[in-house]
Every structure is written in structure tokens, then in C-alpha cells.
Design a protein around this nucleic acid. Structure first.
Length: 927
RNA sequence: GCCCAGGUGGCGGAAUUGGUAGACGCGCUGGACUUAAAAUCCAGUGGCCAUUUACGGCCGUACCGGUUCGAUCCCGGUCCCGGGCACCA
């Protein structure tokens, strides 16, 4: 019987669905295992072969765990709010809910074709009110809590109010926007409105003024990737930075815990490193600079207080509140113009563009608190308002940006750190700054001769003693801006009274997204929700018109899968305590700092308030690589409709054009299909080589515009889902990016056919032999068990498939048809090729699904070898192999070696200096 | 610019702890089967040199240098490509 994948795959997909094979529930008799994929955003383009890569890997692992006796939670859903659907809605007028639903259905169809073992009864969609009521609910809790630095945990704002009414801010150590001081008497005397304003200063969800990319022509706020060089991508209108009142989440309160939590989880070091950099903890000092002839003080944060004697000027961020008071008469115009100019640049452009040096002098002078020298105060956009205090002391000799600035504006440069083994030199001869992390201090009064670390410590001490500032731990991690001036997102459960925000009743959740007449901002530039009729509470108070950002819905979805239909809670205690946390999380690196920081924050907060039992949500994390496209090219002769085959193209004047990879096979163009592809090519002529038109190729991003998109549907149609699953894994390590090339797929397809033949031979009915296996057969099986188990454990699926190929080749050579060998092999292949395995399992006489069977046990006796083939090297070069009994000791090996005549040949009369013997590995003769 | 990852045959990749570089597969070449094709099977396949009996020799993991008996792997530097950089998700 032939391998008929179409029939087999349809049969088992139906079977799994009907018998709910992969639906799971709480089962205390089994250990739990939670395997999660980062849920997709259902885009209109559907899935291409790159998307399922991680899903296949996680599906294999889920099967593997299931076969090893675990109760495996393996769900899937959709991250369904987002800009593309809204953009499409603006263009076509179609409601985003409609297009999103359509896209989800398409995604589901494509996912179903691949035979994943998801428990679809747990599906979630972030845009579903039953789901987003819990996103809104978490937001409400964030509003109701503040962060106590003393207990390192979130606590109810009601308790904070109580505290204020008893002792005021006395002894309070809270995460807040602004440090406040008041007594209980003052608190009690404040109006209700004033009290609410103050509480907002502490809430974990709070309102604040932030910078946004404002496009006046479109009347809306733009995302960073909608802005290019100061203009909107859509329409090319000018974009400026504007302050706007927005919701923020006080993520920074959790900075220390987000940092230390990394030590307890099994993520790659590189990913942890990215998060550490994102959190950006730095120890330093806040230092106060007086201003000459003014009572304004400039506060700077510096990690390099030791270089204070080299601080020769100061720089304020253009957004700094100090700019205005420090602009001296006569300088207003210039400063004003500079600030207007800098508003045209996005933050990213300001950080990345180090070559362009811009800035303006304020006309003011600060006093260096140590040298007492007057130093000029400047405004420049390389200083960012969001980090530290929005002002810096510039040490041009030892910071490259400060150096370039000083050079450009002719400001003094003083060397204060001397590199080890060097003499002081005149900074005016320098080409660049010396960004000194080590060395000794010079030109620095009481610090002279100290090493950098010692000088830092001594300066800090001095700062504290003299009251010039304070020691401070600073984080680069910023509070997350949580408002979007968009339609297609979660509405805030918030209304305004007297200009202050209040939460709506819990009972009013979910607050559903209202209908609007257009998905655009209003004429006044308000967000789309301002268009909704009656967007207000029952009492007539206006509701918030912003919506939540994309990461809101994805921050706790892994919890909702544990208990997706619970209408009383985000997740029940029982479900959370059973499923606990995600054991394995697979997704792309593009989420390394965004989603993966926010959801850790979100989870820690829920942990603090007792909703979840685990402090960290994702125990182990694997980043899948991207699948790139492999584009094909045809070469058209200029000003003609003649195409030249790749090998001959240099003999003509040609331009390369992308051609659809789906009409090219092994780089040979299907000329007929090409002519039909585009009317323009109907009458195309070709210059062939060896009777073929050979295309050129290149590795590029997989995208429609490159005509290199390959859909899983086409592959499944032609080769079947099992082949696609296998091939995606065979392509290379999951974590690595690699190009998709359909040409190689024959190899794994042939392998599956060969596997099929191993069971069926030429017969119509499958008959396995119940004889005892030979030693050789057992060796093949157990070597494979060892290899496959190891490979799956370390997520090396590509090498696992190679091992299967080797195993099947060997068993085919041995003509093995024995049940005791082939059945364990089948169980191991089931995670990779589930349809084919179920079919053969059934044909072998089993009534139950193969998913109910057990992973084979390794018998180490079959791994032993009596002899070892030692590679013998001379001075590190492998020369010949020596077969020796495996139980020989060091001396016996050396003896055997010296008796071998080849040894003398390669010694060429030299005397042996040393023989290195690594047991069971290698022999190296040194002469 | 900063942070992270990667660079091995014609191609995807393997080498798990510093120990035989190129497993496995694609492609290519030759052969078997066939009227023919498909399918299947067998052999060869990093480069250069040698090949007149046969054993071969040299080079080679982006580039330069170092550590080591031994380096694709560790260290220092350079180049190239990909991802992220806070409103794409």
C-alpha cells in the first residue's frame, strides 16, 4: 500500500477533533506541563511558512511530554487588536472586527491543516469582550494599587489613604512620579479633588504628560514606524513632538525585581542580557549645580562623579523644564528655534545620529560644585528628557558625545583620567575622547592618583558629606505609556469628573468598544472614541477616549488559557495552582524586551495582589529564528521583452526582476507559467542555456513585494502536513534564522515514504513480526532512543530528524519488520509526523491513539561497544585510525600504538615527546 | 550610534564538555531497472596537487593575531549580514 498522506491526514485530523484527543483539564494524578506559543496577530496576508516554525517545535515538545506521562496544556489564540486592522478600516470603512474575524478564520484553517495538538476549546482572542474585560480588570487593579518600596510589593491605595490621614508622608518610601511631603493634618484638610490628584502620584496606573509624535495634518498621534525623518509615512506630512496627557503604568517600580527575577529563569543569557540592558540599572549620584546669578539649581545624574573636575559645560534636554528659566535675555530666539527644530526629530533619530552635532547656548553659567568654575549651560538634543534628570554634566575628555560637542562649539576639554601606562597629553590634539573605565585620576585635586573605582567611591562620599547631592540607583527602564489615540483596542474603564479620572463600577465590565461613524480622529484631534454616541457614564460623565496598546491584551493571556471561560475571575485559584506557570514558551526575539518585560511586570503585580501563585510567568523560553525568503530573478534585456538566462546575463545589458518563486523549480523557470503570470510577459522571448531558463536567486525577507512568499497550504497540498512539519524542523536549529527553500523538501518526503515502506514493504496489509530482535537491531533502536531523547530535550529537532533518517536507513538494510523494534520507533516519530504515526499505529493493530502510548525506555546495554576506533594524530594532524578493545588502559593503548608500523612511518625518525590519550576519544602523538 | 545574535562545501546544515571538520538532506555526476518516463535502488561528490600497481600530499570553518599537545569551539582585534532600540505586533 502506498503512503497516501491526503487521506491519512484528513482522517486523523477528524479523529482528533471528534474524540477531543488534545483537550485537557485539571488532573491531579499527572504532573502538569504548560507549553505556550506566542499567539499571532492575525494579519490579512495569512500564514506563510515562517510562522509555523515555532508552533511545530512546541507541538513536538508537547507530544513528547505527553508521551512521557505529563498532562500537557498547549493552547492557541489570537492577539487580535492592532494597527493594521484599523489602518485597513480607515482605508475601506470596514469594521476592524469584521476583518479581524475573517483573518482569524483564515489563520485557523491554515493552522488546522498542520495537525497541531492544540486544545482549541481554550482559544482566546484579545478583542473579545469576554476576554478584554479581564484586561480592563487588571488595569483597574493597577489603578487601585501603589508600590511600597519598603515591602517591595504592591499595596492597596486605600491603605495609603489611611496612612496619609494618620501620619501623612512621614516615613513613606513609595514609587511615585514626584516626591511629596505633607502631614496628616494637611492631608485631612485637602479637598477631595486635591487628594485624588495626590493619589494619582502613587497609583501604578497614572496619568502624566508625555511626548508623542503628533501629526497636525492627520490630526493624530503616530507610531514610531509611521514616522520617517520627521514626516508621516502615510501622506508625507510634517510630524512634531507634542506633550499629551496619557496613561502610564509604573513599570519602573518593579525595575529591581524584574532584574533580579532574571536569575531564577531558564532563558538564554543573550535574552537576559537584553532585558538587563533595557532595565539599565546604574549606580551613581545626583549632583546639584548652582547657577550663576539665579536661584535655579540643575540636578544631574552621573555614574562618573569621579570625572567632576573634567566637567566643563552642562547640557539640558530640549524638553527640560529648566530651559526656560535658564535662557538669558537675548538668547530666547535662538533657544526657541532650536527647541522647535528638535521637535521634528524622533527620539530614535536623536540617539542614532551621533555624527550631527547640534545645540544652542542658553547664555547661563552653572557653577561646578567642586572647582567652583563657571561653566556654560547648553541645550542639545543628544540629551534625552526621559532618562536621569534630563540634564547632564559634560565631561568632554572622557565621553565621546560630549567630546564631539565640545569640539564643535570650541568648549574647553580637560583630561582627568590617565590611561594605564600613558602620559598626560593635550586634549586639543586628540582625535576622540578616551572613554575611561579604568586608569588613574589627574587634574582632580583630592582625587589625584586614585583609580577610577576608588575615585568614584570617594567622590560619592564627598557629595553626601558636603550636601552637594545624593547617591542614587537609576534605571533606564521607563514607565510604559499605556494610552493610544486609536479605535481598535481595549477601552479604559475610566471616566472623568472635575478633570480627574475615576474607575467605572466593576459590575459595568466589560466596557465594550462603542460603534463610531469613522475610525479617524475628530476634527479637534480627539481620538476616534470621541465620535461615539453617548460615550459617557449613566450619570453623564465622559469616558476616556484613548484605548489600550497592543501589549495590554498580551500581558496575561497565558493566565487566561488556564481557565478561559471563567466569568468570575481572570483565573481561578484552583486552575492557577494546578497549571502554575508556563514551562516552555516559544516565540520570536522581536519580543525580547517589549512583551517579555511587560508581561513579567504584569505577572509580578498579579502575584503581589494574590491572583497568581508564581512570581515569574515563563520558566523556560526559546526564541525561534526567522525564516527568510529565497527570491528568484529573471533578467530582462533593457528596453525589450527578452529575458536572458542567469548564466548568460553578463553578456547582455540586463536588469534583474523578481519572479514568483511558485513558478520556479530548482531555479528553472516554468516559461508557460511565467507568460501567464503577468499580461506584460505574454509575448516574452527567452535566451536559454541548455534548453532551460535558469533564474538567479537571493536571500531576502519573505514578503509579497519580493514574490518569495511560500504558503503552508501549497506545501501541504503537494507533500502533506507531516512532510512540512518535518521539513521546517530539518531546515536547521529552531533558534536560528535560515532561508526557506522548497527545493530541499523532497528529502524528508522521501524519508517518510521510506519509513512507510519499512512497515508495509510491498504488501497491502501491514504485518509485523513478533520475533525477538537481533543484537544489531536492538543496537540501532537504542542508539536512536538515546539520540532522539537527548535531541528533543535540547530542542535540536534538525539533528533528531537526521537520526531518524539514519535509523530508517539502517533498519531497511537489515530488512527489519519486527514489532519490538518498529513500534518504539513509531512512538518516537509521532511528535514529528503525528498523522502518519497514528495511521501506522492503527494498521499495526492498536485501537487507541498513539498519543496514549509511552515513550520507549533506553536499555544502555545496547549502547556498549567492544572496540573503539581511535583516530591517531601526529602533532594534531589525524593520520590513521586504530581499532582497540574498549577496556584497554592508558599503557596498553600506548603499547599498541608504538607497535603499529604506521606510527613509525609518521614519526619519520623523530623521537616522541609526549603521547596524549583521551580515553574513548583520541590519541595525539607529539614529536 | 547602542544592545543582541550569526558567518563552516554549489545549498540547508552536523560536530552536545577544546579531541577524526563536512553527519543527515538537497543539488550535481555516473550507473542499475524501464520501450520510455516517473518512482526506486547503487556509487561518487570541500578545494588544489599526485595517481604508471598505492599508500597518498598540501590547503581549508569570514579575516588578522594569540592561548593549547590539539581551536569551527576559548581570548584580543577587524569586516560582513540579521533582529531590537520603548506607539508594528
Amino acid at each position: 500500500m502506498d503512503y497516501n498522506f491526503k487521506e491519512i491526514e484528513a482522517r486523523w485530523q477528524t479523529f482528533w477533533k471528534q474524540s477531543k484527543t488534545f483537550e485537557v483539564g485539571i488532573d491531579h494524578s499527572k504532573p502538569k506541563f504548560y507549553v505556550l506559543d506566542m499567539f499571532p496577530y492575525p494579519s490579512g496576508a495569512g500564514l506563510h511558512v515562517g510562522h509555523p516554525l515555532g508552533y511545530i517545535a512546541s507541538d513536538i515538545y508537547s507530544w513528547y511530554k505527553r508521551l512521557n506521562g505529563f498532562n500537557v496544556l498547549h493552547p492557541m489564540g489570537y492577539d487580535a487588536f492592532g494597527l493594521p486592522a484599523e489602518q485597513y478600516a480607515i482605508q475601506t470603512g470596514q469594521h476592524p472586527a469584521v476583518t479581524t474575524d475573517k483573518n482569524i478564520r483564515r489563520y485557523r484553517e491554515q493552522l488546522d491543516l498542520l495537525g497541531f495538538s492544540y486544545d482549541w476549546s481554550r482559544e482566546v482572542r484579545t478583542c473579545d469582550p469576554h476576554y478584554y474585560r479581564w484586561t480592563q480588570w487588571v488595569f483597574m487593579q493597577l489603578f487601585r494599587y501603589w508600590y511600597n518600596n519598603e515591602t517591595q510589593k504592591a499595596e492597596p491605595v486605600t491603605q495609603l489613604e489611611e496612612r496619609f490621614s494618620h501620619i501623612g508622608t512621614n516615613g513613606l518610601d513609595a514609587a511615585c512620579s514626584e516626591l511629596l511631603n505633607f502631614s496628616s493634618a494637611e492631608w485631612n484638610a485637602f479637598t477631595h479633588k486635591k487628594q485624588q490628584e495626590i493619589l494619582l502620584n502613587y497609583r501604578l496606573a497614572y496619568l502624566a504628560e508625555t511626548q508623542v509624535n503628533w501629526c497636525p495634518a492627520l490630526g493624530t498621534v503616530l507610531a514610531n514606524d509611521e514616522v520617517k525623518e520627521g514626516f508621516s509615512v502615510r501622506g508625507g506630512h510634517p510630524v512634531e513632538q507634542r506633550k499629551m496627557k496619557q496613561w502610564l503604568l509604573r513599570v519602573s517600580a518593579y525595575a529591581e525585581r524584574l532584574l533580579s527575577g532574571l536569575d531564577s529563569i531558564d532563558w538564554t543569557e543573550s535574552l537576559k542580557e537584553m532585558q538587563r540592558n533595557w532595565i539599565g540599572r546604574s549606580e551613581g549620584a545626583n549632583l546639584l549645580f548652582a547657577v550663576d546669578g539665579s536661584d535655579v539649581t540643575i540636578e544631574v545624574f552621573t555614574t562618573r562623579a569621579d570625572t567632576i573636575y573634567g566637567a566643563t559645560f552642562m547640557v539640558l534636554a530640549p524638553e527640560s523644564e529648566l530651559v526656560k528659566p535658564l535662557t538669558a535675555p537675548g538668547y530666547e530666539k535662538e533657544v526657541e528655534n532650536y527647541i522647535l527644530d528638535s521637535r521634528k526629530r524622533t527620539e530614535r533619530e536623536r540617539i542614532a545620529d551621533v555624527k550631527r552635532v547640534t545645540g544652542v547656548f542658553t547664555g547661563s553659567y552653572a557653577i561646578n560644585p567642586f572647582t567652583k568654575e563657571k561653566i556654560s549651560v547648553w541645550v542639545a538634543d543628544y540629551v534625552l528628557a526621559g532618562y536621569g534628570t534630563g540634564a547632564i554634566m559634560a565631561v568632554p575628555a572622557h565621553d565621546s558625545r560630549d567630546f564631539r560637542f565640545a569640539r564643535h562649539f570650541n568648549l574647553p576639554i580637560i583630561q582627568v583620567v590617565l590611561q594605564p601606562d600613558q602620559q598626560p597629553s593635550d586634549p586639543s590634539t586628540w582625535e576622540d575622547s578616551f572613554d575611561a573605565k579604568e586608569g588613574t585620576l589627574i587634574n582632580s585635586s583630592f582625587l589625584n592618583g586614585l583609580t577610577v573605582p576608588d575615585a568614584i567611591a570617594k567622590t560619592k562620599l564627598e557629595i553626601e558629606q558636603q550636601g552637594l547631592g545624593n547617591i542614587q540607583v537609576n534605571y533606564r527602564l521607563r514607565d510604559a505609556i499605556f494610552s493610544r489615540q486609536r479605535y481598535w483596542g481595549e477601552p479604559f474603564p475610566v471616566y472623568y469628573k472635575d478633570g480627574l479620572p475615576y474607575l467605572i463600577d466593576d459590575a459595568a465590565l466589560p466596557l465594550e468598544l462603542p460603534e463610531v461613524d469613522a475610525f479617524l480622529p475628530t476634527e479637534k484631534g480627539e481620538p476616534p472614541l470621541a465620535r461615539a454616541q453617548n460615550w459617557q457614564t449613566k450619570d453623564g460623565y465622559p469616558l476616556e477616549t484613548s484605548t489600550m496598546p497592543g501589549f495590554a491584551g498580551s500581558s496575561a493571556y497565558y493566565l487566561r488559557y488556564m481557565d478561559p471561560n471563567n466569568s468570575q475571575a481572570l483565573v481561578s485559584k484552583e486552575a492557577n495552582e494546578y497549571w502554575q506557570d508556563v514551562d516552555l514558551y516559544i516565540g520570536g526575539t522581536e519580543h525580547a524586551v517589549g512583551h517579555l518585560i511587560y508581561s513579567r511586570f504584569w505577572n509580578k503585580f498579579l502575584y503581589d495582589i494574590g491572583v497568581v501563585c508564581r512570581d515569574e510567568p515563563f520558566r523556560k523560553l526559546i526564541n525561534q529564528g526567522m525564516i527568510q525568503g529565497r527570491s528568484n530573478f529573471v533578467y530582462r534585456m533593457k528596453e525589450s521583452n527578452t529575458f536572458v538566462s542567469s548564466g548568460l546575463k553578463d553578456q547582455y545589458d540586463t536588469i534583474p526582476l523578481h519572479v514568483d518563486v511558485n513558478i520556479v523549480s530548482h531555479d528553472i523557470l516554468d516559461i508557460e507559467a511565467f507568460r501567464n503570470w503577468n499580461p506584460e510577459y505574454r509575448n516574452a522571448e527567452f535566451i536559454l542555456e541548455n534548453g532551460h531558463y535558469v533564474c538567479g536567486w537571493a536571500i531576502e525577507k519573505m514578503s509579497k513585494s519580493m514574490f518569495n512568499v511560500v504558503n503552508p497550504d501549497i506545501i501541504v497540498e503537494k507533500y502533506g502536513a507531516d512532510t512540512l512539519r518535518l521539513y521546517e524542523m530539518f531546515l536547521g536549529p529552531v533558534e536560528q534564522s535560515k532561508p526557506w527553500d522548497t527545493n530541499g523538501i523532497d528529502g524528508v518526503h522521501k524519508f517518510l515514504k521510506k519509513l512507510w515502506r519499512l512497515f508495509f514493504g510491498q504488501e497491502e496489509v501491514l504485518t509485523l513480526i513478533d520475533e525477538n530482535p537481533t543484537l544489531e537491531e536492538n543496537k540501532v533502536l537504542h542508539r536512536t532512543i538515546k539520540k532522539i531523547t537527548d535531541d528533543i530535550e535540547r530542542f535540536s529537532f534538525n539533528t533528531a530528524i537526521s537520526s531518524f533518517m539514519i535509523c530508517v536507513n539502517e533498519l531497511t538494510d537489515l530488512k527489519c519488520r519486527k514489532r519490538a523494534i518498529l513500534e518504539p520507533l513509531l512512538v518516537m516519530i509521532a511528535p514529528f509526523a503525528p498523522h502518519l504515526s497514528e495511521e501506522l499505529w492503527r494498521c499495526a493493530g492498536h485501537q487507541q491513539s498513539i498519543s496514549n502510548s509511552t515513550w520507549p525506555t533506553l536499555d544502555p546495554q545496547y549502547l556498549m561497544d567492544d572496540t573503539i576506533e581511535y583516530p591517531v594524530s601526529f602533532n594534531g594532524k589525524m593520520r590513521f585510525k586504530l581499532s582497540l578493545a574498549s577496556d584497554l588502559d592508558h599503557q596498553e593503548i600506548e603499547k599498541a600504538l608504538l607497535h603499529n608500523e604506521l606510527t613509525n612511518k609518521y614519526l619519520q625518525g623523530n623521537t616522541i615527546k609526549k603521547v596524549v590519550i583521551v580515553p574513548k576519544r583520541i590519541i595525539n602523538v607529539v614529536f
